[in-house]
Amino acid sequence: MGKSIPIQALTDLPMWQSIEEGALKLQFCSDCDTCRYPPAPICPSCLSMDSEWRPVTGEGTVMSWVIFHRKYFDDFPPPYNAMAVRLDEGPIIVTNLLDPVPGSSLIGRRIKLEYVDHDGRKQHGARLKEAD
């Protein structure tokens, strides 16, 4: 067993840095404005290789969620949740719900990202916009 560690690569360093700074930035195509997530050297829509990094609103809608009952990481004692959220800017990201998981479905619920300390690094989590 070990800890969860972000693996950083040339194309995605600005993303990890923006999370550490508490305001997620994503990469957008300079030519057609398509969001590249995960970050990439080329636009999958128009094949432009120019891009810019912009902060996102941090708001989105829950696509799905799971609850881990098995331990995979020392820094994530089970049970813990993970959610797939479609950001208003388009891409689907994975994050954790910071509120208690309600008994009802989370799918379709609106969320806003927050930034929390996790084992010595900062990362995003989600709050339900309307309390359960």
Binding site: S4, I5, P6, A9, F76, V94, N96, Q123
Partner: peptide, 12 residues
């Protein structure tokens, strides 16, 4: 990549 981008949130 599904692991690289999701493991920091415990999703593996």
């Amino acid at each position: 990549l599904s692991y690289v981008y999701h493991a920091p949130w415990g999703f593996t």
